[in-house]
């Protein structure tokens, strides 16, 4: 039971917390925070971490078939970065008092989500270009904004990730540009890739602000700094000219230029978004099963490491 004294203390702590938020002072792990703030961060940061790690799978599909040694090395380096980004984010999430084992268990039990975009297949080499350019490009817009998040460890992880991401987007765009300078078949493959990845990339920003139940809370406490729609529009405004420059057509018949650097876009298929996020995308089952299998097959390594002498040297 909460006594009067306790609720007075909580009110004081909350006032103190909100004063810090308003003054742009970051919250650190040992600071008092409201439970709803902690729960929101636990969900958001772990979802972000899972996305980095699951996102390695569609790209790994092309390592053995990369068209040159140069592109194979680049792809390996990019996938290694994504694994690293997952580790930064899990570590930030662990400062909230939940163990990494628990986060992984929630993912395997289907209680934690990851970005729905990684449930689409990578069908041709241009998809690797489209992922780097569009999917990482969308992630960068989101992550640049999150560098100013109010939770210290999350913010610091974002700063580090943004610095590393810029090569990802460039390598993707370079692939698309080269294919657009190639044969008719290569150009057709590049166009096919943007046709399939454009809409899933726009969905990465989440539902429209009017349908986003958690946004207002997250904005009030400055976990999120800009709304889904604002970020999505930023991405579109940056990306459409990049697409036109290399001769690719954005697959949106209702896309309109309304001023120098601003566009309006057609309706997003939210039914597809809901289907994919709830497990019915083309690769949901495959992605999760692969993660579970890899985790299970790696168990002996963790057991051996625990037994080994090197821990105590």
């Amino acid at each position: 039971m909460t006594t009067k004294l306790e609720s007075a203390q909580t009110a004081e702590l909350l006032a103190d917390f909100e004063k810090k938020i308003n003054a742009e002072i970051k919250i650190e792990p040992s600071d008092w925070m409201p439970d709803a703030y902690r729960q929101h961060l636990i969900r958001q940061i772990s979802q972000h971490a899972h996305s980095e790690v699951i996102g390695m799978q569609p790209e790994a599909n092309w390592i053995t078939r990369a068209p040159s040694l140069r592109s194979k090395k680049i792809l390996l380096a990019k996938i290694q970065d994504e694994g690293g980004h997952g580790l930064y984010l899990y570590s930030a999430a662990e400062t909230l008092g939940v163990s990494r084992e628990q986060y992984i268990a929630w993912l395997h039990q289907g209680k934690a989500k990851y970005a729905s975009v990684f449930n689409y297949p990578t069908l041709n080499w241009a998809d690797i270009g489209a992922i780097g350019w569009l999917v990482d490009g969308a992630a960068i817009v989101n992550q640049v904004s999150l560098q100013r998040t109010s939770y210290g460890p999350y913010s610091r992880a974002m700063v580090r990730i943004c610095k590393e991401e810029s090569f990802h987007q460039r390598q993707g765009y370079e692939i698309m540009w080269r294919m657009m300078q190639g044969t008719n078949d290569q150009q057709r493959m590049a166009q096919d890739a943007i046709d399939r990845w454009w809409w899933p990339a726009l969905m990465m920003f989440g539902p429209h602000d009017s349908d986003s139940p958690r946004t207002s809370h997250a904005m009030l406490w400055k976990i999120k700094r800009e709304s889904n729609d604002v970020l999505r529009e930023k991405f579109i405004n940056k990306t459409v000219p990049q697409s036109e420059l290399i001769g690719l057509k954005v697959p949106d018949p209702n896309l309109k230029k309304i001023s120098d650097e601003t566009y309006t876009h057609g309706d997003i298929n939210w039914e597809e978004f809901r289907q994919v996020i709830n497990g019915n995308g083309p690769c949901n089952q495959e992605r999760l099963e692969h993660h579970i299998r890899a985790h299970r097959e790696g168990a002996w390594v963790r057991e051996a490491a625990l037994q080994s002498d090197f821990r105590n040297q």
Binding site: R70, K73, I74, A77, D81, E164, S166, F167, Q169, R170, Q171, Y173, E174, W177, K238, T239, P241, Q242, L245, I246
Partner: peptide, 18 residues
Amino acid sequence: KIYRHPTFYNLPEGVTHM
């Protein structure tokens, strides 16, 4: 592994926001 740096990549002239 210089390809871990963004300056490694060729970009078309006139591209912005990258």
